[in-house]
Amino acid sequence: MSINRSVENMAKGGMSMEEFKAWVRENIDADEDGKITKDELADIIRRNGEWFAGWKARKWMRSADSNRNGVVDEIEIGNLAEFVQKHFGIKIIS
């Protein structure tokens, strides 16, 4: 499983949490409501040419959506960052 090449390039030396949040807003939050849905995650996975986008998006959501309301909001963005660090080896500096 890979993540969008732009974030891989941006994160070669690590990225700050603010840079990660900005990347998420620009690349994942399609409706710009400040909340990330499973469909938005699936869309970026699909745009990356990945297979099983729906399944992978559900996996991301299970990891990041701690209150199980179906979205990753500002409070849970740290959970999404942890998932990205763990599964993609991208260093995010707090």
Results as ranks from 00 to 15, higher is better:
residue 37 T to E: 05
residue 84 V to F: 04
residue 21 K to D: 04
residue 58 R to E: 11
residue 7 V to E: 11
residue 86 K to M: 08
residue 44 I to H: 09
residue 34 G to F: 00
residue 90 I to M: 14
residue 40 E to F: 02
residue 71 V to K: 12
residue 36 I to S: 09
residue 24 V to Q: 13
residue 77 I to G: 11
residue 2 S to V: 01
residue 59 K to W: 02
residue 42 A to G: 05
residue 86 K to W: 01
residue 63 S to Q: 12
residue 20 F to C: 13
residue 71 V to I: 05
residue 59 K to H: 13
residue 12 K to C: 09
residue 29 D to F: 01
residue 74 E to Q: 08
residue 24 V to D: 11
residue 41 L to Q: 08
residue 83 F to T: 07
residue 68 R to K: 15
residue 44 I to P: 04
residue 11 A to D: 09
residue 6 S to Q: 11
residue 21 K to C: 01
residue 91 K to S: 09
residue 57 A to C: 04
residue 84 V to L: 09
residue 17 M to K: 11
residue 84 V to R: 01
residue 25 R to M: 07
residue 20 F to L: 07
residue 75 I to Y: 15
residue 93 I to C: 12
residue 41 L to T: 05
residue 62 R to A: 12
residue 46 R to V: 02
residue 88 F to E: 15
residue 44 I to N: 10
residue 38 K to Y: 05
residue 44 I to L: 12
residue 42 A to V: 01
residue 37 T to Q: 09
residue 84 V to A: 04
residue 60 W to F: 10
residue 42 A to N: 02
residue 80 L to G: 15
residue 86 K to A: 14
residue 34 G to W: 01
residue 7 V to C: 10
residue 20 F to Y: 10
residue 30 A to M: 12
residue 80 L to T: 15
residue 1 M to L: 12
residue 40 E to T: 00
residue 77 I to M: 13
residue 67 N to L: 06
residue 6 S to A: 12
residue 47 R to G: 01
residue 9 N to L: 13
residue 4 N to A: 10
residue 19 E to R: 09
residue 93 I to T: 14
residue 84 V to G: 11
residue 72 V to H: 13
residue 27 N to W: 02
residue 68 R to W: 08
residue 30 A to Y: 04
residue 6 S to M: 07
residue 28 I to K: 02
residue 86 K to F: 02
residue 58 R to L: 01
residue 19 E to H: 08
residue 42 A to F: 00
residue 52 F to H: 08
residue 62 R to I: 03
residue 30 A to D: 09
residue 26 E to N: 14
residue 71 V to Y: 06
residue 15 M to I: 08
residue 14 G to M: 05
residue 92 I to G: 08
residue 14 G to T: 03
residue 71 V to H: 12
residue 1 M to D: 05
residue 18 E to M: 10
residue 58 R to D: 10
residue 59 K to D: 08
